[in-house]
Design a protein around this nucleic acid. Structure first.
Length: 833
RNA sequence: GCCGGAGUGGAGGAACGGCAGACUCGCGGCACUCAAAAUGCCGUGCCCUUCGGGGCGUGUGGGUUCGAAUCCCACCUCCGGCACCA
């Protein structure tokens, strides 16, 4: 179309999302429509039930992408839905503003991470507002704000008081490119989660949070959560609880005891050798004086050099070196040789294992390689055999079932003081130190006299110093800020040095949902009565990529904070919804593939309502969805169709106040009202328990299609006209959670009312019932006829009608009727032979 | 290897064990128009058809059932998670 074709008059007749969207956004901003009061504040209504609707907070980098549009579109629909069900809804927004990308940018360009971050925040905020998301903006936070990280530091100190934060030297994952340590959770296949660089092992003094103390509670309480099963499974696997026994092997020369963890204590008689991890602290002592010193040292050094990926490689042959010593098997006094081998990990169990080659695949492989004895102790398939069976070669346990032997052997070990039942976890403590600039400083100082000293709470926040050079040098860039580093000890007043590491940004996001509730509180991170009113989050929405990291850390924090008496909630997120990823041409959107669709571009072209509604319509939100420009445009056309309908209906039917279901309709008017109530019922059920927004939107499309189909025959009759107006207003009302601007516009046009102030419509059961229905008639399970029958018809009557059908008769074909199945309200199936 | 999830038209996707393919896109047709766009309406799984209808169809092969996309078993493919955790 050329501009010459467009007259001024045409313009006013065209659906113009920008005008409509700006108009309503201004109303909501001016009136503070989405602001909600806390307990004790004016306007707070204790009578209403509460709902905390929360999407995962965004990391502000550049501009929002489609994933953001999706998560906030989904969350906003829920927030609107709950509000119109009479809930006090808190729906806040903030920014996970510390982190590496801003800092890496600073290294490249010299731009302060704060400047870049705040630029991004401004862009995010502006776009979120242009999307019309119903956020209470008075609660906005940024985790990089000293008013926020002051409390992150405060919580760190609280954890320290409780013994849940500690500093120790440990083998840690080190990313040479980012020049920082990483948590186990941030190492993917031996590579840095962020930059993909191969991770190295280093031994460093680091801060940890003792999440392992909560392993059992994190595991048990997961059962109570209304979360997707796959997320719960991932968390269970990550915690990796295994039950077994600790068994003590002793070494005579040098005199040492070696506890090992095993899940198969009943195979103890099959232990034919013993293996230590290369990182085991006693290695050198054991090998000393055996003539194996050099070989062992070489092996240990080699293991230290190799990366965790090399060591973890799938088909890597087992290697090891004899230590030249023996340990004694406590069940039979047998001496078995000791080895050092890198298939034993120092981080799990005790860093030592008893090797049972007959019943463990790895031990078997090692025994084959080094020609070590293999002794079967459980009958069964070929070796290595990991199943159950009767015990053999196990002294007085022979012939017993292995499960039974398990219990008896553990009991016997315990009575002898050589073992006990034990539980091991895969979960490790959370390493939180980062040798980077752009994060919350860890609030401690080191004093020669007083050691590790927490910064007193009244001296918080420990502000990030301004520095010149952000480039990592193997220690934190903060170390260069001499004036800042050198301080005085809070205990003795003597000279002391500040901790120069900053916190993992997952610490920031482990409690943000609490700060939203009381963001202005200067005395405490939140007032307990406020948190206890709102918590837990009733509906949390975000990507499944945070199934382990963020969601586990936030659960841990919540439990720890509850244990300190700061909170009643034991779990942060009662319900979790994980949205699927939006792809383009079947592939993840990425700059390198050049298939990125930016929300801003689309919103500019078709409006926020169309963008949001399309996101909800393209696929069930839990699944991914492939972005198609044509499909998106189709939704825009649908919204325009609604808008045009609304103009026409307002003109033809008038815009009387309210949207009550008109009484006394019959014929097509009644049919339309019934359709409207069907849509109410369908949309309501699709939104709430099902999160099937795509079928909810399609139900509204069906309703609108029916209005178009029937309207011309109804305008002239008052009852018909009322039905058309009601159906159209209902469509707007049901569309509102997805397309809030257009929903508001149309609803106001037809009723004079504000849709968000109206309760969510309720389907009238009387209108969901029909006088007749289409009976399906099958012969041998195949559809042969459809008959319109009265809803009131009895089974006998239905059967009579079915038998009487000509089409059915043609298929009975003289066969013998052996069975007739009648499902009233649905179908008849006649079985012939 | 282990643990999840998913395979339905040309595409995205619908379908409490009971009409397979709602809704949308795309495509075809009609109306409006000088014409086009926009809009409105109709059609659109595949094959056969005497136009009444008939056959086949939800990854593959079996099974349960009056009846299976849906439940069960085996297999294939794809996606996600974990992976030397003793």
């Amino acid at each position: 179309m050329t501009s010459a074709d467009t007259t001024a008059d045409d313009q006013s007749e065209r659906y113009d999302p920008h005008t409509i969207e700006r108009r309503w956004q201004r109303v909501w901003a001016d009136e503070g429509t989405w602001e909600v009061a806390n307990p004790g504040q004016p306007g707070f209504d204790a009578e209403d039930p509460k709902a905390y609707v929360l999407e995962m907070l965004p990391y502000p980098s550049g501009e929002p992408h489609m994933g953001h549009l999706k998560v906030y579109s989904v969350g906003d629909a829920i927030a609107h839905f709950r509000r119109r069900h009479g809930h006090n809804v808190v729906h806040p927004m903030g920014y996970d503003a510390f982190g590496l990308p801003a800092e890496n940018n600073a290294i490249k360009t010299g731009e302060h991470p704060r400047t870049a971050t705040e630029k991004s925040i401004a862009a995010f905020r502006e776009q979120f507002k242009s999307w019309g998301i119903s956020i209470d903006w008075t609660r906005e936070i940024g985790t990089h704000d000293p008013d926020y990280y002051r409390w992150t530091q405060w919580i760190f100190l609280k954890l320290y008081e409780q013994g849940l934060a500690y500093r120790t030297e440990a083998h840690v994952n080190w990313c040479p490119k980012d020049a920082t340590v990483l948590a186990n959770e941030q190492v993917i296949d031996g590579h840095c989660e962020r930059c993909g660089t191969l991770v190295e092992q280093r031994r460093l003094e680091q801060w940890f949070f003792k999440i392992t103390d909560y392993a059992d509670r994190l595991l048990e309480d997961a059962a109570e959560l209304d979360w997707p099963e796959n997320v719960l499974t991932m968390q269970r696997n990550w915690i990796g609880r295994s039950e077994g026994a600790e068994v003590v092997f002793s070494c005579e020369q040098p005199a040492l005891e070696f506890p090992v963890f095993t899940t198969r204590p009943e195979t103890l008689f099959g232990a034919t050798f013993f293996v230590l991890s290369p990182e085991h602290p006693e290695i050198e002592r054991i090998a000393a004086g055996t003539g194996q010193e050099d070989a062992v040292r070489d092996y240990v050094n080699e293991a230290a050099r190799s990366t965790s990926e090399e060591r973890g490689a799938e088909d890597r042959p087992k290697t090891g070196v004899p230590l030249g010593r023996e340990v004694v098997n406590p069940v039979n006094g047998e001496r078995i040789p000791m080895f050092v081998a890198d298939y034993v990990l120092m981080e799990y169990g005790t860093g030592a294992i008893m090797a049972v080659p007959a019943h463990d695949e790895r031990d078997h492989e090692f025994a084959e390689t080094y020609d070590l004895p293999i002794r079967r102790v459980i009958e069964g398939d070929e070796l290595p055999y990991a199943g159950d069976g009767a015990m053999v070669n196990s002294g007085r346990f022979d012939g017993k079932d292995n499960r039974e032997a398990y219990t008896e052997i553990v009991a016997w070990l315990e009575s002898e003081g050589r073992g006990k039942p034990a539980i091991n976890y895969r979960l490790r403590d959370w390493l939180v130190s980062r040798q980077r600039y752009w994060g919350a400083p860890i609030p401690f100082v080191y004093c020669d006299k007083d050691g590790i000293v927490p910064v007193p709470a009244d001296q918080l926040p420990v502000l990030l110093p301004e520095i010149e050079d952000y480039a990592p040098k193997g220690k934190s860039p903060l170390a260069a800020a001499e004036d800042w580093v050198n301080t005085e000890c809070p205990v003795c007043g003597g000279p002391a040095r500040r901790e120069t590491d900053t916190m993992d940004t997952f610490v920031d996001s482990s409690w943000y949902f609490l700060r939203y509730l009381d963001p202005g509180n200067e005395e405490l991170p939140w007032a307990r009565e406020v948190a206890d009113y709102w918590m837990p989050v009733d509906q949390y929405i975000g990507g499944v990529e945070h199934a382990i990291l963020h969601l586990m850390y936030a659960r841990f924090f919540t439990k720890a904070l509850a244990d300190m008496g700061l909170l009643a909630a034991q779990e942060p997120f009662a319900n979790l919804f994980t949205q699927g990823m939006i792809t383009r041409d079947g592939a993840k959107m990425s700059k390198s593939k050049g298939n990125v669709v930016s929300p801003a571009e689309y919103v500019e072209r078709y409006g926020a309502d169309a963008a949001r509604t399309y996101i909800c319509f393209m696929a069930p939100p839990v699944k991914g969805g492939d972005w198609s420009d044509e499909g998106a445009e189709g939704v825009f056309r649908f919204l325009a169709r609604v808008w045009r309908l609304s103009r026409e209906v307002a003109e033809r039917c008038g815009s009387s106040a309210g949207a009550e279901t008109p009484d006394g309709a019959s014929g097509e008017a009644r049919e339309l009202l019934a359709k409207a109530h069907w849509a109410i019922d369908k949309v309501t059920r699709d939104i709430d328990p099902r999160f099937q927004f795509n079928t909810a939107v399609s139900a509204v499309m069906e309703l609108v299609n029916d209005v178009y189909r029937l309207k011309d025959g109804l305008y002239d009759d008052p009852a018909g006209s009322a039905a058309v107006r009601f159906a159209t207003a209902t469509a707007a009302s049901l569309l509102f959670p997805f397309a809030p601007h257009l929903g508001s516009e149309v609803y106001e046009q037809l009723t004079g009312e504000r849709v968000w102030e109206q309760p969510w419509p309720k389907a009238d059961p009387a209108l969901l019932e029909h006088d007749t229905y289409t009976l399906i008639v099958q012969v041998n399970g195949k559809l042969r006829d459809r008959i319109e029958v009265a809803t009131s018809a009895s089974e006998e009557e239905i059967l009579e009608l079915a038998r009487g059908s000509e089409k059915v008769g043609a298929h009975l074909d003289g066969g013998e009727v052996v069975k007739e199945v009648v499902v009233p309200g649905k179908l008849v199936n006649i079985v012939v032979r």
